[in-house]
């Protein structure tokens, strides 16, 4: 197995043609400084967490990479392949990872208006010094090559970026994982499921920011008003109400009225995903756990999903509930 190199074959290695794509997806969960990475056979699972009441999850599917190899650790003879625990899991600094991925400059679509002469791009040395838009890979017909590899447990995550002859090597220290459980959404007990355009949700969330609120109340009801987001602030209150128009709410499955309150700033921190996603599925189970699943169209026609989970504030009638108390404690900090 071992090649002529200094080590055995790495545990994991993958090559992507577009560092930008990875960057845009991972940036959605950049609300936390660190992210937990789990390497599986199907892809890379990045998750970030905030105060145990919010989780963001990005799954970088195998298909996003041009090559993806995961080699099971050979020295550990564990039979049960499907056990998730066998997959390597570690934490890395998300901000450092994002910094690395954009080392050659990644621009938002808006900034791409200035098209400098492509001739500059031939000289890769210039690419490092600012003026990133000139070296936008799309214009030059080449993409930022990105190789990720993880040799073995405890090793750093190695990232190699290549663009027009310039290679950047990065080693990101990996940390022990801190949390393992995810906020559980009871899929079989959904109280609401609404699918709509992500930009509309984004618009509504921004609209409410005018009151500088601390809490956001989401209410869904089988009768009018069907779906409302509302907030309160020192200067007044604001409410955005959506009708049941199928053009507006693609899917609307609400068997009975549900009202839940969440911390506004947390929901707001999912804005990046709302910006770039095309659709969002807003689900909520009977306990009020909110799931926002964003569908993001990726370069080359596929879709990726970014998932957020939120724990609600304890509502009045739930008071005294054991689980609720812990939630309230965290929420009111």
């Amino acid at each position: 197995m071992a090649t002529d190199g200094n080590a055995e074959r790495p545990l994991f290695s993958a090559v992507s043609n577009s560092a930008r794509q990875l960057f845009l997806l991972l940036r959605c969960i950049s609300f936390a400084p660190k992210a937990q990475v789990q390497i599986t056979q199907k892809g890379l699972r990045f998750s970030a967490e905030e105060s145990q009441v919010m989780q963001g999850l990005v799954f970088l599917e195998k298909s996003l990479f041009t090559s993806y190899t995961y080699t099971k650790p050979v020295n550990e003879n564990i039979d049960d392949d499907d056990d998730e625990d066998t997959f390597p899991i570690f934490q890395i600094s998300l901000s450092s990872l994002l910094e690395t991925l954009q080392i050659f400059g990644i621009n938002d679509i808006k900034d791409r208006s200035t098209n400098h002469e492509a001739s500059y791009g031939a000289n890769g040395a210039f690419a490092r010094g600012g003026a990133a838009s000139a070296f936008e890979t799309r214009f030059l017909g080449m993409t930022g090559m990105c190789r990720l590899s993880y040799a073995a447990d405890g090793d750093p995550l190695r990232i190699t970026l290549e663009e027009t002859g310039v290679t950047t090597n990065c080693e990101l220290t990996t940390f022990e994982p801190e949390f393992r459980e995810e906020i559980l959404l009871q899929r079989e007990n959904l109280a609401q499921k609404i699918i709509m355009r992500a930009s509309w949700l984004h618009d509504a969330i921004n609209e409410l920011s005018s009151t500088s609120p601390s809490r956001l109340t989401i209410a869904a009801s089988p009768s009018a008003p069907y779906f409302t987001l509302s907030s309160n602030g020192p200067l007044g209150s604001a409410m955005v109400e959506f009708s049941k128009d199928p053009q507006l709410l693609e899917t609307f499955q609400v068997p009975s009225r549900t009202v839940n309150t969440y911390k506004y700033s947390l929901i707001k921190s999912a804005s990046r995903a709302m910006e770039i996603a095309s659709k969002v599925s807003i689900r909520c189970d009977e306990q009020g756990v909110l799931s926002l699943q964003f569908m993001i169209e990726v370069e080359g026609g596929g879709v990726s999903f970014v998932d957020f989970r939120f724990v609600p504030y304890l509502s009045q009638d739930d008071e005294g509930d054991e689980e609720g108390d812990t939630v309230e404690d965290v929420g009111s900090e």
Partner: peptide, 10 residues
């Protein structure tokens, strides 16, 4: 599309 935004200001 029947989106109504209501503000109640003090």
């Amino acid at each position: 599309h029947g989106v109504i935004k209501t503000y109640k200001l003090t």
